[in-house]
Simulated scan of single mutants.
Amino acid sequence: MSDKIKTRGRGRPRAFDRDMALDQAQALFHAQGYEGVGVAALAEAMGINPPSLYAAFGSKALLYAEVLDRYSRASPLSEPLIGPATDPDARPAEALTNLLRKAARIYSADPATAGCLVLEGERSTDADAACRARSCKDASVQQLHGFIAVTHPDKADVVADYVAAVMSGMSADARAGHSTERLTAVANMAALAIAAMLPTA
């Protein structure tokens, strides 16, 4: 998607590519956190000047909100879980275990963007940024709750909260440099607890 904002540089200005700009902003926010990135750095990464950034996104906070929403929708971890509602032979505990193992791989795939942008954003010292990230996380927890409630309605609250807590810890560990193997070991240990809480009928 392009609009009429022009990028900096010599010669004929190029049209502003919003998706590419969001990619650049996401990489910076993921690597340095909301507080660690200023408007000047964001604009430079996008190849525009600060006034153009404000014209395109309104503010740094609104840009961050758009990045979070885009990240949440595009993440492989947001893909629907396979459960009894779509596959009678599927086991909820197995689906949740696979989710944690996938998170272990994704969170540790790139040291520059380790962990989860949303979960790390929730730890922000900027109250507004943390609130925006928390809203994204809460939406994901609600999806987990709905998935679990199909077969284990009495366990949906605690298991959804447990999975979210494990993922938050794995994200923090990935930021600290833990390997995929270490994170996967955590996922496998959590799988034992999940299986105990969600026994197969």
Rank of each mutant, 00 (worst) to 15 (best):
S171F: 07
A74S: 13
D3H: 14
D161V: 00
I148Y: 05
D89S: 12
L63M: 11
D138S: 13
E44Y: 00
S124Y: 01
R12F: 07
G169T: 02
L117K: 08
A127Y: 04
I48S: 08
M197G: 03
D161E: 13
A133F: 07
A185D: 12
D19I: 04
S2C: 00
V158R: 12
D3I: 01
S75V: 02
N188R: 14
I106K: 07
R123A: 09
S168K: 07
G33P: 01
L117W: 09
G38D: 06
R105Y: 02
M20W: 10
P92W: 00
N49S: 12
H178I: 00
A164P: 05
S59P: 09
L99R: 15
A40K: 13
A193G: 04
T97W: 03
A40R: 14
R91G: 00
H30Q: 13
R175E: 09
T86K: 10
E35S: 12
A25V: 02
E35Q: 13
L119E: 03
M189E: 11
F29W: 05
S78C: 00
T200A: 13
A133D: 04
H178Y: 13
E35T: 10
L144N: 00
A129C: 08
R70H: 05
D157P: 04
Q142M: 12
L22H: 02
Y64Q: 05
M167W: 01
L183V: 04
A112Y: 06
D138Q: 15
V186P: 01
A160G: 02
A156F: 04
D69M: 08
A74H: 08
R132K: 13
A109P: 05
V37L: 04
A65R: 14
G83W: 02
A114S: 14
A191Y: 10
A104L: 10
G47Q: 09
A109R: 14
E181T: 13
P111C: 01
M1C: 09
G11F: 10
G11N: 11
D17I: 02
P88S: 06
R14C: 00
A133C: 06
V158I: 15
A61Y: 12
I106W: 05
R12I: 11
A195L: 01
S171K: 02
F147H: 12
A174W: 04
G146W: 10
A130N: 04
C131K: 15
G47V: 10
D157K: 07
Y34C: 09
Y71P: 04
D87C: 07
T7H: 07
A127W: 00
A93Y: 06
Q32A: 12
P13S: 06
H145L: 04
E122R: 11
L63C: 10
G36M: 09
P92E: 09
A74F: 04
A31V: 03
Y107K: 08
I148L: 02
K155E: 14
L22G: 06
D128P: 00
R105T: 09
I194A: 01
A160L: 06
K4N: 13
K137Q: 15
I194M: 06
R70C: 05
L53Q: 08
T180N: 11
